[in-house]
Design a protein around this nucleic acid. Structure first.
Lengths: 265, 265
DNA sequence: GCCCGCCTTTCACTCAGTGAAAGCTGCGGT
DNA sequence: ACCGCAGCTTTCACTGAGTGAAAGGCGGGC
């Protein structure tokens, strides 16, 4: 055992799961082993156990995929499907009123994760995927989640290079800091063409006694957008959801997971 | 090591995940250890690793919950969110036409798992949960999935006692066998008050070249139901989805040459 | 046929994992 | 304040589950 002495079996199992991504949802054993940085026989044995349990499935082509059993267990995540179940009716109301894209996201470490999305058929196309990640500094939901995140999270984001998506993306830490202060002051966030040049989003926080745990937003075509008119709608939806969460949903009251180190991802 | 000699570390990690259920989405360490049948220190150590990775989260109350990271990975399951993404527009169409509950399910072992549900506000209440399981022999989707399941699956279900939910639930194996033959003959399934005494469901299969991989259904109040009128609608939705699935399935599952970007993400 | 890439199995070694036991920590009762 | 208890965390010496190099299939292209 000289490859990675000190590496636990559990970490290897988790590395196998980590090997899958939206871009690569199906992997051969060799790909799996390479991505998990494991010797092939090791990957083979651990993967076989995962298949036996249902965490992975193996197709007739020999490729491994994430198994339904893992999806089932994952659906028990309070911040995942649990949050979605509560939010969906409210999101649908918002959609009925506006017929625009509605998005729901939470923060995970230094990024955001989309929990649900209602994509209006006639609304501007959005490239987000449920279960997908995105940077915190560009989208409306991201600005909300960042503005109300613990100070150390903000510092870590501000310290790292801010990726540019369009010419309007805020990449200057000082400007971003002022922007976040403004978000906190007015209680909603506007991201105007900071992700794509055709879209604008307006987002509001969702609060529990523990603080801001999620964000909801509308994404609209920038040329027919009126942020000042949309903001009250989104904020109202955020408040309704905040109340629903606080009363019936203590379970989200997990400690805010603060990344001590960004080692796992 | 005398407790369970021969038990792999991986199986212990998976047992920890298995300990969670819709009824128990938050567990203390002691509960977790008991449910996973692990000594407390062992559960403690494995759980700590799972928390570090994000598979579990630990609240301020000390309880463990399924973590968002696991939900993210689970969302990559082709038969989970992948299927849902394809099915949702079609399910919405079916809802628009009928304003009744629409359900989508797949078979997992000897039970079914609900992948998605559109619950009409004015429709009859359904007690199903996305990510939840149910027996195969009672619901409309269950009868479809069972009717087209491999023979050995059918035999196992027929051999076990069939749980009774209402006085109309089919619990006689011979009657169930005839019912399944009828389902295969007509190409759709009707479950009339076999789960609750107020509801009836009509279901149709979703096929790929590999066979029936999912089922879609409408659940309506039994007293305003007309199965013969609903069946063509549900079957049409099933066929549309079958076609959508067959084309995209080849890209994900098959070895078909797709514009290949062998890039590591 | 022969090679090549990919998957599976074997085998002897060893360190990651183990659990009993001891040590915390916080809380409710008196 | 003190005790007792329940739940959590850490320690420590032992050991078998896990290991990877190597060898053995297997199939498909040339």
């Amino acid at each position: 055992m000289d490859a990675q002495p000190g590496r636990s079996v559990t970490s290897k199992v988790l590395a196998l799961l980590d090997a899958f991504s939206p871009a690569n949802p199906a992997l051969t054993l060799t790909e799996l082993a390479r991505r998990a940085e494991l010797p092939l026989p090791t990957a083979h044995r651990r993967a076989a156990e995962l298949v036996a349990w249902g965490a992975l499935e193996r197709g007739e082509d020999g490729r491994y995929r994430i198994g339904l059993r893992l999806w089932e267990v994952g659906s028990l995540a309070p911040r995942g499907l649990g949050l979605r179940e509560l939010a969906l009716p409210i999101m649908e109301d918002l959609y009925e009123v506006t017929h625009e894209n509605v998005q729901l996201a939470v923060r995970q470490d230094l990024e955001l994760v989309f929990i649900e999305r209602i994509a209006g058929r006639h609304a501007v196309p959005v490239l987000t995927r449920v279960g997908g990640r995105f940077a915190l500094h560009a989208t409306g939901v991201g600005l909300i989640l960042l503005a109300y995140a613990p100070a150390e999270v903000q510092e870590q984001v501000l310290a790292a290079p801010l990726e540019r998506y369009t010419e309007l993306t805020i990449t200057d830490p000082r400007r971003l800091r002022r922007c976040l202060a403004e978000v906190r002051r007015i209680g909603y966030a506007v991201s105007d063409r900071q992700v794509t040049m055709d879209a604008l989003s307006v987002a509001a926080p969702i609060r529990t006694p523990d603080g801001v745990v999620a964000a909801i937003s509308l994404v609209v075509a920038h040329d027919r957008a009126d942020p000042l008119a949309l903001a009250p709608l989104v904020q109202a939806a955020g408040r309704v959801l905040s109340r629903a969460l606080s009363t019936s949903y203590r379970q989200v009251a997990g400690g805010a997971p603060v990344p001590s180190r960004h080692e796992t991802q």
